[in-house]
Simulated scan of single mutants.
Amino acid sequence: MQVRDITIDELEKKAAELGLGLPIEQTEPWARYQATIDGRTPWGCVEFVGEGEGGQPKTLALASLFDHKTHGYHYLRSNHAPVWVEAPSPEQEAEAMAALAAHVRKRDSKQTFARLCVAADLPACEPTLSGIPYDQTVVIDVTSGDEAILSRMKPRGRRDVRKALRESPVECADETERAAKSFEEYYDVMRETGERDGFHPAPCSDYEDMIRILGSEHCRVYAGRIDGRVVTWSIVTIFGERAVRYYGASRNDTMRKHVTDKLVYFECCDLGANKAVTGYDMMAIGSEFSPKLMGLNEFKTKFTKQVTPVAPDRDLPLKKLFYKALVTAKRLRDRK
């Protein structure tokens, strides 16, 4: 297997020719958005090439990578990639990682590691230094109309949504245009959510840039209001047939009023009305691989009867001694 550099336009063209549904993170609009975030730079795209019939080159996978600079070192990140033409075997993934490591070392010696999605637990890869990777998600089928969407939920999901439709005072709407003008009132809800759930949200400008750069074709903001006050919202990305609930936030004092149940169902129906969208990815649930995310399961899994496996993020060390030192330093920090 070989790895060769290609442009983002070539990546999107090859994906279209091969009938691959690209995650939005592997597209040109996403690259423009990432370039606005401090410490991130589009590094380039690569094609994993094998041997096809008659010895002809054959595209096996594609990936767009970004240079991340943090704490004085660089690493590469490729979200939801490599995007494989056909599901790879562990041996193919191992060969791909070896080829990518050789390619990056030759082209860019400053990179410490590469973070990609790898299904198999390979000796060449390590658990991620940061973040919480996941190997399962929930994808809601939004085809065939509102009642069909409801009918495919678990009984608990149908019960909660019907209760929300009957009793919840929240009014839901697509507020993309309003949020694009100012994200402050939505960001205030995110701050409250972060304090409740123990995380620090990105700067408000990151969400504003995401909405502005991706544009309404690829990014929607849905919100629920009670008496004119935003109490729950979602940022949803759209590319091809797949929509993704990328961010969500809700007020503490209205959580028991089923406001987010009502909003998610509204989103499903609205996205389903766009005939191009067939699946709505709730992005990440817990499992044995990612037990820290188990708290998400009760809410997300009620909207569908299926769980979708995905290749989780793993780190591919390029400077092995330096990477080992980073692991040791993190372990010491975590003990404090």
Rank of each mutant, 00 (worst) to 15 (best):
V3Q: 01
I6Q: 14
I6V: 15
I6C: 11
I6S: 15
I8S: 10
D9N: 15
E12Q: 15
L18P: 14
T36A: 06
I37L: 15
D38F: 13
G39T: 03
G39W: 09
R40V: 02
G44V: 09
V46Q: 06
E47A: 12
G50T: 11
G52R: 03
G54V: 00
G55R: 05
A63R: 08
L65S: 00
Y73M: 07
H74S: 08
S78I: 06
H80R: 14
P88K: 04
P90W: 10
E95A: 14
A98P: 00
L100A: 01
A102M: 04
A102G: 10
H103T: 10
V104N: 11
V104Q: 00
K106V: 04
K106L: 13
R107F: 03
A114R: 06
R115T: 07
G131H: 02
D135M: 04
L150P: 07
L150F: 09
K154D: 05
R162C: 00
L165W: 00
S168M: 05
P169L: 13
T176K: 05
T176N: 03
E177N: 01
S182D: 13
F183G: 01
M190Q: 08
E195Y: 13
D197E: 11
P203N: 05
C204P: 02
S205C: 10
S205V: 07
M210F: 08
R212L: 14
G215H: 10
S216N: 13
C219E: 08
C219Y: 05
V221Q: 03
G224S: 06
I226E: 12
D227H: 12
R229L: 14
I238D: 01
I238R: 06
V244I: 11
Y246I: 07
Y246Q: 13
N252M: 04
M255R: 15
G272V: 11
A273R: 15
V277E: 05
G279A: 15
Y280V: 00
M283F: 15
M283C: 15
M283D: 14
L293W: 12
E298D: 13
F299Y: 11
T301V: 07
T304F: 14
K305P: 04
V310Y: 09
P312N: 06
K320L: 05
K320N: 07
L321P: 00
F322L: 11
V327L: 08
A329T: 15
R333P: 03
